[in-house]
Amino acid sequence: MDILEKFKDYLKHNELKASSFHPYFEEALNYMLQAGGKHFRAQLLLGVVSAVDERRFEGALAMAMALEMIHTYSLIHDDLPAMDDADLRRGRPSLHKKYDEVTAILVGDALNTDAFLIAASANLSDEIKIKCIKTLARNAGSSGMVLGQAIDCHFENSPLKQSELEFLHLHKTGALIAAAFELGAIIGGLKDELAHELYKIGLKLGLIFQIEDDIIDATGDEASAGKPVGADGAKNSFVNLLGLAGARSYKQRLIDEVSGAMSNYDASLRDLVLNLIEKYLKG
């Protein structure tokens, strides 16, 4: 099995438990986590570990699951009526449509909280786990993803400058992708300085990911995207700011910068990043 299949298999065999007499909470807890998706962040984390020290791969699976849980909770909350009010996610009804808003809020809360329990229980040294948990919290919380989401929601219908738009998405999207890169480096046993260098490259990778998402919203269809498209009309997106051609040009410039930066690293690390770009971000 390749890395993606190994991770999917791990998710399948580690469904979350919440035994009670609630008629569907446990089912809802796993509903979006088991719905597929790219698992881009998990692939990045596990790919780095595999490239650097494959002996730590099994221990890294739990940390990748924790990261995926945090990402999934953010999508569940992002789809709520108070935010994007989206009916579709990963090709199926969004969680509040499948169940109800209260369940979606609470499932998101549970995924976010339980992620740290799973991270703390990973089969890794305590030193590595503490470093990883700090990285997860810093990039998911008020100085990372949540800050970006707050800016995104507050400035809807208020156009931002390019530097402000980049700040927004370096946090909302870039932070967790960069964290995945850094987490893989930490688990793989790379020095802190090198892990931080990979983090900075990961931020650019996050911007590429977001620009591609904006392009898909402008040009794609709901069936292939697995979520509503054409929904960014009032949002601060790279397509709205730069135009479609400008967004594509900027994305390619960032791809070239990331490709150039990765040329300084081991071939296995370089190939990991370039293959993920080719598979998911070259559309």
Rank of each mutant, 00 (worst) to 15 (best):
S263Y: 04
S20C: 09
V102A: 14
K6T: 04
L45S: 03
L244I: 12
Q210D: 00
A175R: 01
R56A: 08
G36A: 09
G220F: 07
L203F: 02
A82S: 10
V107M: 09
D217H: 10
G59C: 04
S143N: 11
E101A: 14
G189E: 10
A247V: 13
F181G: 10
E222C: 10
E182L: 06
S20Q: 07
L190K: 08
F7N: 09
A110W: 01
F209I: 01
I177P: 02
F21P: 06
Q34D: 04
S158N: 09
S163E: 15
A140D: 07
I211E: 00
R248G: 02
Y250R: 14
L242F: 14
L272S: 07
H39E: 13
S74H: 03
L272E: 03
G59A: 05
A120K: 09
Y265P: 00
E164A: 14
L165P: 00
A51R: 01
N123Q: 15
K191S: 15
E58H: 14
L11H: 03
Y280E: 13
L46Y: 02
A150V: 15
A231F: 00
R270N: 15
K172E: 06
A261H: 08
I118V: 15
N157G: 10
S263W: 02
C153Y: 07
T173K: 06
A120M: 09
Q43K: 13
E68K: 12
G246L: 12
D152S: 03
N264Y: 05
L165A: 07
D217N: 14
R92M: 01
S163L: 08
L194H: 06
D126N: 14
K98Q: 05
A66Q: 01
H196G: 03
E222W: 04
A62S: 14
C132M: 05
D214K: 12
A137K: 01
V48L: 12
D214F: 15
N275D: 14
S263P: 06
C132R: 02
L272R: 00
I186T: 04
Y250I: 03
A178V: 14
D87A: 15
E127V: 09
I118F: 10
A28Y: 08
K129D: 02
